[in-house]
Design a protein around this nucleic acid. Sequence first.
DNA 1: GATTCGATTCTA
DNA 2: AGAATCGAATCA
Length: 199
Amino acid sequence: MNMYEPLDQTFFEAPVLELAKRLVGQLIVHETPNGLIVARIVETEAYHGPEDRAAHSYGNRRTKRTEIMFDEPGYVYTYQMHTHTLMNVVCGPRGIPHAVLLRAAEPVEGLHLMQENRGEKLKMKDWTNGPGKLSKALGVTMHYYGHRWTEQPLFLAKGSETLEIETGPRVGIGNSGEAVHYPWRFFEKDNPYVSKYRP
DNA sequence: GATTCGATTCTA
DNA sequence: AGAATCGAATCA
């Protein structure tokens, strides 16, 4: 079919901070009806479940939305915010609701499809440099809630080694007390597709 | 009704 | 650079 092989389940079995860091540089592969779309992850954020005020699962909050985070690592957690879909990788052993948000990636294959999904007028740099933009460019919707990142047609594959990974505070979580400052955002140094930081 | 792990389009 | 606007899901 294509040359991309899904990552093994064991890849996801790691502490959430380590997984978030490890995900930078890996590939998101989406086999769409119109063709293959591949993007290389350049930015992630870790969400530390019960003790993290910025997490949806803070205090073990268990709702229809957060339910999937209580399952095994490797599930797709998508959720809708405003008009956008955001993609997460479920982490932590079963019962521990950790997750990693995929914030940005650089286009690798299926460029014309991404441009189609994002609009002809936009510069390539603006296709995938934010979590909502990334989902739209890849054609990922709420349909994939509960899918596994190890299975077609949407999966993660081994990417290239990253040059250098930097850390910093997470984006858009202003009202989260001390958690605001935690350096749980991971991104590749000097990569132009990293999202713009907004305080 | 208010808030949220955003994005786009306007105004300047 | 900043304000205005969009509006799904969730929680008060």
